[in-house]
Structures are given as C-alpha cells and as structure tokens.
Design a protein around this nucleic acid. Structure first.
Length: 704
DNA sequence: TGGGTGAGCGCC
DNA sequence: AAAAGGCGCTCACCCA
C-alpha cells in the first residue's frame, strides 16, 4: 500500500548571497534539520549536530507526492539527491500549498506564508520564539536542538493541515487538475533555476569593454553639445530632468559646497585633538618632578580647529538653460516645466533635425545595456559562471511567471544588442536552443473567444498582419502576402508593419486613440483596422463583453474606497476548461466616466487581456511540465541536455554537442501536444493547433 | 544614508 | 465614443 504524501520541511543555515536569503547555491549554506511527516503518521526528523542532515535509505519509498509550502526553497537543497531524482523518475509529484493557494484566490494571494494560511484556515500559528532567534541573527545551527525540532514538528503539522484545506478548496473550485499540472511545471522551473544560465565570462568581459568604449565615443561626440554651467555644476546626460532642460529649456539643479561660516562670518572647521605642553600660571612649561615620567614635559589634550578640514554646507542652486526646441504638450511630466526625454521624444527630435538627439538615441540604448546586463547589473549574479535566476511563480495577477535577481525574461534580443552572446551551453563545445510557440497570444485569443474564423485562420497558419491589412484595404489576402513579403513592395511592406503594431496592441486591449498615438497611424486608419477586425472575428467582441458581464456579476466590495466610493473585486473563469480564474480590482475611472458620475470602474483593457495572457501562461506551464518530465525520464537525455529558462512563450535549453538531433524533436513533440494533453487532463477538445519554432546556435545571440 | 517614487526601458 | 496588458531593474530625485 503506497503512502499518499509526505510533508517536507527543511531548516537551513541562512547566509544571504547573490540576492537570495539562505542561498541554496552558496557552498556555506547547509541543511541543519530535515522533517518528514508521512500521510500514515510516521515522522522522520534529523539534526546535523548528531547525524547526516538527509536521512539514509529511500525516505520517499512508496510516496506519491511531496507536500510543502514554497517547496522550491526546500527542493533546491535536495534537487540532485538520488532519492529525489528516483522519486521523480518513478512519477513522484509535488504539491506546493503556496502555489495552490495562489490559484484558488485568482492569483490575488501572492507569497502566502504558512502563518497567513494557518490564520485563514484556523490552524495554530508558528511559535514566535524561533523566529526571534533568526531575527536576532542567531544561526540555525545555534538554536537549541530540541526547540528547533519542536518547531519543525509544528511546521509539519500545520503544513499538513493547510494542505488538506487548500486541496479541498481547489477541488470544490474544479481546479485540482490545473493545479496538478502547475506542480510539474514548478518542478521544471526549479530545474531551470538549479541549472541557471551559463555565462562565458570572457565573452562577457570583451563585450562589456567594447560597449564601454562605444559609450565613451558617444560621450566625446556629445561634448560639443554639453552646456556651459557655473563652477561646481556638471551636466549629467543621463539625468532626464537635465536633458529636458537642455532640449526644451529649464533649470539645471545642482549642489554646491560652500564654506560654512559662523555668526561672525568666520569659516568653521572640524575639531581635532592635539597634545600641547601644559603651562603654569606664569606661562612656563611644566615638567614631571617624580614617577616614571620624571623630567619629561607635562602635556594636556585640547581641541583645536583642523584647518585641513573646513566645514561645508550643501547648497541647492539652479541655473537656467534656454533650450533647443519646443516640447509637445503631451510630453510634460507631473513636475511642471519638465518633459519626457524617452525614446519616442528623442526620435521626433531627430526627425526635427536636432543633431544631439541622434547621438542620444544610440547612447541611451548602450547605457541601458551596460548598466542592466553587464558587471554592474545581471552579471553580478554569476556564481562560478552560472547565473541562478529566480523564476517567481506566485507573483503576477495573470498566473504568468516573473523573473528576478536577475530578471532573465528581459535580456535584449539578439538583433538589438550583443548581450545574449555571453549565454552559452553548459556543455563544453555544446550549443544552446530556444523553442518558441508561434504567435501564442493570437492562438489563445482564437481559442478562448471560440471565434470560428479566427480559429480557422490560426490553424491555416495565415500571416495575421497581412490578413489584417488585406481586410482593411479590401484586397485579396494572397495578393497582400505576395506584395508585402515576397516582392517587398515598399507600400505594402510599410503597411504590414503598421498592421503588426496594431495586432500587438489590440491583443493588449488598446483603444483606437492609443494605437494611433504609438503607431503614427491616424485615428481613422486605426478604426478601419478595428472595423475590419470586428467583421472578421465577431466573437472576440462578444467574448470581451461576456468577460465584463461575468466580472460584474461576481463583484464584491473589498472594503477599500476611492473618493469615498467602495471599490469592488470581480473575477471570471477561463473558457478553456482549466477553470483558472482572473481577478480584477476596480480603479479610479477616467475623466469621461467621472463626467457621467462613475468614480470607479473595472479596466476594460485588463479584462480583455488577462485571460489571453493567463491562458497563454497556462499553456507554456503545461509545456514546461511535460518537457521536464521528458528530461526526468531520460536522465536529462543521458546528461547531454539541461533546461535553462522560460520566457512567456519559449523554453531555453543547453545542449551537448550533437544533442540537438534527439532533444529538440522531443521538446517540440511535447510542446505541440497541448491539445492531447488538455483532452487527457481537462477532458476538453482544443480547437487550435500549436506550432513551435526552434533555433539553435553556439550562444543565445547567434541562433538559427 | 536609506527608502520610496516616477520615468524609462528591457522582455513577452 | 471614450481607458495600451503583464513584469523587474536602474537611474535620478526627493525626503526623512
């Protein structure tokens, strides 16, 4: 008879490094105590002071699932332990109560703690005493053994209690299957963090110094444009406000150090202590008459002004600049008199023929790369040439992952910078790969809206940008594709690019005005696109309206207020069979709504977007889970491949030489098997096809 | 000096 | 008629 589950909890040393508390990748951290509570009631507790921290033998024998809270933390300490590896190999699963709680609350409860959940479910809270030890900087190892083990017992019992409550709630909400899928995906994420991103430090260093030289060159070009400022002020090209003043006129604020003077106008100094001869009342030196120091000069200590260290005061001074051109009104910042100096603004100024703007455009991109992605940024997380990023699984409103310390989901794309060149294979002479879902958001939009035409178009593999253009122009799709893509007819090429901009923003729920503003199209032109879109895919609008109705129907007051009006929270369920939920909190209404007496409202753009983003996240999550299982089953393809990262619609893999031949097809097979998987897990028919594109290369920049 | 905020920008 | 979605990081700037 198998054991249904075991509750797992570790107490570890708590050294923080590389942005991680109790960093599992730090050689100095270790397991102090390990607790296991099996569903049959048996317990195992260890303590490093008396035995091995990890029990002997197969402590997961016959176990179905490991239960815990924020299991990623504990499992990273045990990730390559043979007992755990074998457990997964024979189909073992995990159940992270924090992750489950996140989903049953429509992603509203992020990082739910044991205490917060114990509170909700009426279970005993953690004893404060142990927390006090940690708070006072006591190492885990120095906490009295029995106290720590009692604490561990408490955690095991409470976790088990929480598990039962969360699982019950999930079941009642029809979310058991979805949560089960997500747990395999979480394992995939743990594997990715464990392996991390492998960095070629030589390439990193080379590219960084190249970038520094380029930036220096651009600064030299900027010199002739640097305004003359008074003594003590230095113009800072990376300050938005100073740039605004240079371009559009305004004050340069700067600090000066001025000598501090006393009430009489005399300069003040820091004091120093000196020894001076002690004098008798007549002003003569005094010598010791007896004792060890007999005959020596008597001295005393006095404080005098240290003339080397005058006191300064910091004064805030302003110097006005005339400006080079007129700003647009819409560029104005909250702080009056200052204007945006971002990419869009710089672009327009370049178009106006302002030379300095052209240099600035290049400089900004390079400075961003340097500060965010090289030694002062992302690269400082490299531990022995590996960046162990954190994939946050309980962070977003939509159920997507986020990444931090560092954020490995915002590394510049290969065509815009060299940053990706430093990311290489974990295997000597190996390769890296990125496998993407093709146009995932459009596929999901078609699926969740159940729009027949859109589904048809997705499955036919049409070029949506050309199709949208064709619909707008009232021309034949095939003609447009030919002219825009094959013949590269300048007009059609440009128009298709515009349609592309439209597509992305439409997926985010943007309105005509916003799309017009950012694409440079006229409002009429955008509206023509929207009309064509609504004619082609009528169900999308219907779906959006349905979402809004559901959210309204499920709305309850939150207990908070905006301008005295109660704020509501509403939600809707996914239409894909996952039973995922998407939650929305009312926000302060825009002015035109307020004019009609509406103070707070749900954001239509959020309501249009969350389920697209979230269900896409669900698909990727399922894929990561399946792919991870394949890696487990094959022992990382006999140790020739490693999962590295995932970025919303793709998976990154490290490959040994030659491994792509057998690894990539398996990954593609798993990712394109979403319909079969959803049928099996949720019992639903998925109407859309999932396509993937794989790219392989020596590094993440040069992929083909 | 350290925390919070806004702007800007990297990814999807 | 009317609302451009989700993240995390760095910098400048302000304030305590």
């Amino acid at each position: 008879m198998g054991i249904k589950y075991v509750v797992l909890d570790l107490e570890t040393s708590t050294k923080e490094s590389y942005g991680r508390i109790a960093n599992p990748f730090d050689k100095d951290n270790y397991i102090v105590s390990m607790g296991l509570k099996y569903s049959n009631g048996r317990r195992i507790k260890t303590h490093i002071s008396q035995e091995e921290a990890i029990p002997e033998g197969d402590w997961l024998k016959g176990v179905g699932a490991i239960v815990g809270i924020n299991l990623k933390f504990d499992l990273l300490y045990l990730w390559r332990h043979p007992v755990l590896v074998n457990f997964f190999k024979r189909g073992g699963r995990i159940y992270d109560c924090q992750y489950a709680r996140y989903f049953i609350t429509a992603q509203q409860e992020k990082y739910a703690s044991m205490d917060s959940m114990a509170n909700i479910y009426g279970l005993p809270l953690k004893p404060d005493k142990i927390k006090e030890y940690w708070k006072n900087g006591i190492d885990t190892i120095d906490i009295p053994k029995q106290e720590l083990l009692d604490y561990l017992d408490h955690d095991l019992d409470t976790t088990e209690g929480i598990f039962k409550c969360v699982a019950k709630e999930a079941h009642e909400l029809g979310m058991t299957a979805m949560i089960r899928e997500r747990m395999d995906s979480l394992c995939g994420n743990i594997e990715m963090e464990f392996n991390g991103l492998k960095v070629d430090l030589e390439v990193a260093e080379r590219n960084e110094s190249k970038l520094r030289k380029e930036i220096e060159g651009l600064y030299r070009e900027l010199e002739q444009y640097t305004p003359q400022l008074p003594e003590g002020a230095e113009f800072n090209w990376s300050s938005g406000r100073q740039l605004s003043a240079l371009l559009f006129g305004g004050p340069i604020k700067y600090r000066t150090r001025e000598p501090k003077v006393d009430m009489d106008g005399k300069p003040e100094y820091y004091k120093k202590t000196v020894e001076v001869p002690a004098l008798d009342p007549h002003g003569n030196e005094v010598r010791y008459k007896t004792g060890d120091k007999k005959g020596q000069l008597k001295t005393k200590k006095v404080k005098i002004n240290d003339l080397d260290r005058p006191k300064y005061k910091i004064a805030q001074t302003e110097y006005p600049l005339k400006g080079l051109t007129k700003p647009r009104k819409e560029w104005e910042l909250k702080e009056p008199g200052f204007y945006k100096t971002g990419e869009d603004v710089i672009k327009e100024l370049s178009a106006r023929g302002i030379e300095v703007a052209k240099i600035l455009a290049k400089l900004k991109k390079k400075e961003k790369d340097l500060s965010a992605f090289y030694s002062s940024g992302m690269l400082r997380y490299a531990q022995d040439g590996v960046i162990h990023h954190t994939l946050n699984n309980v962070q977003t409103d939509t159920g997507r992952l986020s990444s931090s310390k560092p954020n490995a989901q915002q590394i510049p794309r290969g065509n815009t910078s060299d940053v990706r060149e430093m990311f290489v294979s974990h295997f000597e002479g190996g390769e890296v790969a990125e496998v993407d879902f093709s146009s995932l958001e459009v596929v999901i939009q078609a699926w969740i809206s159940k729009d027949k035409n859109m589904i048809q178009n997705v499955n036919d593999g049409v070029d949506f940008h050309s199709l949208r253009l064709a619909a707008k122009l009232g021309e034949d799709y095939d003609d447009v594709v030919r002219k825009a893509k094959k013949e590269k007819d300048p007009y059609y090429d440009l128009e298709r690019t515009k349609a592309k901009g439209f597509s992305f923003q439409r997926a985010y729920g943007a309105g005509a005005k916003a799309i017009a503003a950012s694409t440079g199209m006229s409002i009429e032109e955008v509206e023509a696109f929207i009309e064509a879109e609504n004619r082609m895919y009528p169900n999308v609008e219907k779906y959006n309206a349905w979402v809004a109705r559901q959210v309204d129907k499920n709305a309850v007051e939150t207990g908070t207020y905006i301008n005295g009006v109660p704020v509501k929270f509403g939600w809707h369920k996914a239409t894909t069979g996952t039973n995922a939920r998407y939650g929305f909190t009312q926000q302060e209404a825009p002015d035109f709504m307020k004019d009609r007496g509406v103070e707070v409202s749900f954001s239509p753009t959020q309501m249009k977007n969350y389920s697209i983003q979230g269900e896409a996240g669900g698909v990727v999550s399922t894929a990561v889970g399946m792919v991870w299982r394949k890696f487990v089953e094959t022992g990382n393809f006999n140790n020739t491949a490693l999962l590295m990262n995932t970025v919303h619609d793709c998976i990154w893999i490290s490959l040994a030489k030659g491994a792509k031949e057998y690894v990539i097809p398996e990954v593609e097979k798993a990712m394109t098997a979403i319909p079969e998987r959803y049928k099996e897990v949720y019992g639903v028919d998925v109407p859309v096809i999932f396509r993937v594109e794989s790219e392989v290369g020596p590094n993440m920049k040069d992929l083909h």
